[in-house]
Computed example of a mutant assay.
Amino acid sequence: MTYHTDGRVCSDLDPFSEEFRADPYRHYAQLRALGPIVWLERHDIWVVHHYAQVKEVLTDWKRFSNAGGGGLTNYFKEPNWRKPSIILEVDPPEHERTRRVLMRLFTPGALQKMRTVFLQEASTLMDGVLENREIEAISQLVQPFPMKVFPDAVGMPPLDRDMMLIYGGMVFGAFGPRTAWYDKLLERADEVSAWVDAKCERSALTDDGLGAAIYAAADRGEVTHAEAKLLVRSFLSAGVDTTIDSIGLCLRALAEHPEQWKILQEDPSLARAAFEEATRYDSSSQSLFRTTTEAFEFEGQKLDRHQKVLVLIGSAGRDPAVWEEPDRFDIRRRITHQIGYGTGIHGCVAQMMARLEGEVFFRTLAEKFGRLEMTQDATLRLTPGLRGLLTLPMAIGPR
């Protein structure tokens, strides 16, 4: 730690480095010890990492804008490779109009319909997987479930999984600095963008899915038809990778804590609580950005206009000022102030659907699986973007 002459508390930690991403929680504790807001010298950005400041930044959209982009690229100063999302990367009043359309999709009736379908799909998937005794859980168990139930709910035809994950890498990889890995990925940007564009056309969707409901809102004049297509795209970009990674991290946490797995087996109704605790304990969405709209003082530091502020959601989930024994994974923990899905007007609009997917997955798992053990260490994805697992070798067996 060093101090600038202007009084800024500084750190040379690099939150996008492989070392940091491999074990972020150790580094989060170091940052929390430095104070409520720190200047990261390597990227010339501010970072907040305590629960209180994370929540304040995320709820104060007037000073901490989402229109500057959810990643390191500053949309106020430079363009991105794709058009900004009209739900994720705008502020009110534009944001209110588009978010209203999406929020109406998740009625109790719609969620109950999804639950019925999700339970059927989870049961079929897990019965098939249980024919084996050793699996690579990410590719054989974790990925197939969201990749099936999500596009079906939206009304999309079966998706090309490889293309879908490439698109997700492009979207979430943009959260960090440009790297050779990301530049290589962007070589396919035109191809992937055209693929995504075609999948979001009204003609490509069924008549009874969430995508059709978005286009119906356009028919009523709530958004334009061009905006409806962009909202379907936002669903596609935000609704798959996050859930895959969240389920994978929760599965690893249960395998690493066999006493918690036993508790879940004894009471599968705790599936929702297990997924909620995993989202606090080891979230796929560890961080995002906001951009200042003006110069002002925040927690004793002077912030300038159009400066990037890194918001460490993962650190807030381990803040000892809020959580008792925050480094302990406990599926019976009562979580009444979850921040793993963000908060404020830009909190995850589809979080009810993601929570339902997680609940159904782990309830079905607890009802059908007996043995659940890691046979080798899991492999983390260390490239910028979401936190998730590349591999999770497991030994499994039925109850």
Rank of each mutant, 00 (worst) to 15 (best):
L159E: 08
G176V: 08
S285R: 00
S287R: 08
M170R: 12
M164I: 03
E201N: 12
V196Y: 02
K199H: 04
I244C: 15
D267W: 01
I244F: 08
K229N: 13
P258Y: 00
T293P: 06
C200D: 15
R233P: 12
V223P: 02
A273C: 06
F172P: 06
T242M: 08
E277V: 07
H225T: 14
S284I: 04
G209P: 09
V232L: 04
K229Y: 14
M170S: 06
L270C: 05
E256C: 04
A238Y: 11
T279H: 09
A226H: 08
L186I: 09
A271V: 04
L249D: 04
I214A: 09
A295I: 01
G176C: 13
P158C: 07
D183A: 11
E256S: 11
D282W: 14
F289T: 14
D241N: 15
A213M: 12
E277N: 00
D190C: 00
D207V: 09
E276M: 15
Q286E: 14
R252A: 09
L210K: 01
V223E: 01
D197C: 01
K199M: 11
R188I: 00
V171K: 08
A238Q: 09
A212C: 11
L254W: 07
F235S: 15
L270S: 00
E191I: 00
M163A: 14
D183E: 14
Y215E: 03
E259V: 03
T243H: 07
E276L: 14
T279D: 13
E227H: 12
A295M: 03
D208C: 03
E256G: 03
V192K: 08
P258F: 01
L249R: 08
Y215Q: 05
A295K: 07
Y182A: 10
E191H: 00
A189S: 15
S285H: 03
R178N: 10
S234I: 06
A218N: 02
K199Q: 14
R178D: 11
R290E: 02
L249A: 08
T293Y: 05
D241C: 07
A212I: 01
Q260M: 09
L205M: 08
S237W: 00
L251K: 05
Q286N: 07
E227I: 06
M163D: 04
E276W: 03
I263C: 03
D245C: 14
P268W: 05
G168T: 13
G221V: 02
K184G: 02
P158V: 15
L288K: 04
D183S: 05
A174R: 06
T242I: 08
L254P: 11
G239S: 06
E266S: 10
S237F: 01
V171H: 04
R220C: 10
I214M: 05
W181F: 10
R178C: 04
G176I: 09
P177E: 13
L165H: 11
E191A: 10
G211F: 10
Y167T: 02
T291D: 05
A274C: 13
S193K: 10
K199T: 09
L251G: 10
R280T: 13
P258Q: 01
Y167Q: 12
L236E: 05
A271S: 15
A189V: 15
